[in-house]
């Protein structure tokens, strides 16, 4: 608890009034000094007795850069209070202050500026007496974070990735790949009788190897101090992974921040975005690169290597042709 600026001014003036009154005997200064003293005493008592306000922070859901979400608080406080929230770089605004009126639900807009797992807070609540003479601050730390995913861009020119799509298939426990006409030499065991009956000719099920189902996407980025390379890598990997998952392909991810085992569907996409949101720049292991079907490298410019062919990521999303 400490004096506010206004409180200091009033305290000095009250002191001056007492001194002047005693020295020069202007008794009417009592009328000015005494109530001020009472106001101070009241202020100190009121602020001292205030309980710690209860604050519940409701973190907005994860989103992509450029989106705006609402940070919300449920606050239970009494008296005159003011709430100040601080946000790290990567979110805007960096701080927000609002007065509180009783039990309140406070909201404000947060703009997701940059990818990352941003730890929010600390939150301070400043309680003053009704006249604003004395103030007391309560500080709340937490370990909650706002997750901003990398920017996902639609891949318009998927030509380079087309081969992957054809090659991979719907994964399954039995992991069969596709149906094709019987070719001499195919084991009879693989004949798909149901379809043969409908089709009229012999049809064979071609099984793929288990791990051929999954496309491995690997990302690397050169550390450059600003984190731009890491962002570029994350954006590229996220876009590619989303594209593949949307088509229905099983995807596996390896980035400096960790690995994600193969999987499909929405759940896999969430997990990938989560991983990519947090990944720092750096390199991955050599065997990871060896297994990679898609290798993304960000070092100022972002290049995507697919089965030996290099293509600029900008082209993938820009819609221009591939130069092999």
């Amino acid at each position: 608890m400490r004096l506010t600026r206004r409180g200091t001014l009033v305290a000095l003036a009250t002191l001056g009034a007492f001194v002047a009154g005693a020295t020069f005997g202007a008794r009417a200064l009592n009328a000015v000094a005494a109530p001020s003293l009472v106001a101070f005493a009241y202020a100190v008592v009121v602020v001292w007795r205030t309980d710690q306000p209860r604050v519940e922070r409701l973190i907005p859901p994860a989103g992509h850069p450029g989106e705006t979400r609402r940070m919300q608080f449920n606050v239970a406080t009494s008296g005159t209070a003011e709430l100040t929230d601080r946000l790290p770089a990567g979110l805007r605004p960096r701080s927000h202050t609002t007065p509180l009126l009783g039990d309140d639900h406070v909201e404000y807009d947060v703009e997701y500026a940059r990818r990352g797992a941003h730890a929010v807070g600390p939150l301070t609540i400043r309680i003053t007496d009704p006249l604003g003479l004395v103030a007391r601050r309560f500080r709340y730390e937490n370990d909650k974070e706002v997750l901003v995913y990398p920017a996902v861009t639609a891949i318009t020119d998927g030509g380079a990735l087309a081969g992957l799509v054809d090659q991979s298939g719907m994964p399954d426990r039995q992991a069969f790949d596709r149906l094709r006409e019987y070719a001499p030499g195919d084991p009879l065991r693989d004949v798909n009788w149901k379809t043969t009956a409908k089709y009229g000719n012999l049809v064979v099920t071609e099984y793929a190897a288990e791990d051929q189902g999954a496309v491995t996407v690997v990302g690397e980025a050169t550390p450059d101090g600003t984190g731009d390379n890491a962002d570029a890598m994350a954006d590229a990997v996220a876009s590619i992974v989303t594209y593949l998952l949307d088509v229905g392909i099983e995807v596996e991810v390896a980035v400096p921040g960790g690995e994600l085992p193969a999987g499909v569907g929405d759940r896999q996409r969430q997990a990938a975005l989560d991983l990519l949101a947090r990944t720092p720049p750096g390199q991955v292991g050599t065997d990871a690169i060896a297994n990679a079907d898609v290798h993304v490298v960000a070092e100022g410019e972002t290049t995507v290597e697919v089965r030996g062919a290099d293509v600029r990521y900008a082209d993938l999303v820009g819609g221009r042709g591939v130069t092999a």
């Binding site: 005693a22 008794r27 005494a34 109530p35 009472v38 009241y42 202020a43 009121v46 008296g79 007496d129």
Partner: peptide, 23 residues
Amino acid sequence: GVAMVVAAMVVLTVSVSLVPGGA
């Protein structure tokens, strides 16, 4: 809250004597 402070100021001031007087 303001009403309460001001009322306290009135009540406590009137019942306490402070700076010694003198013309």
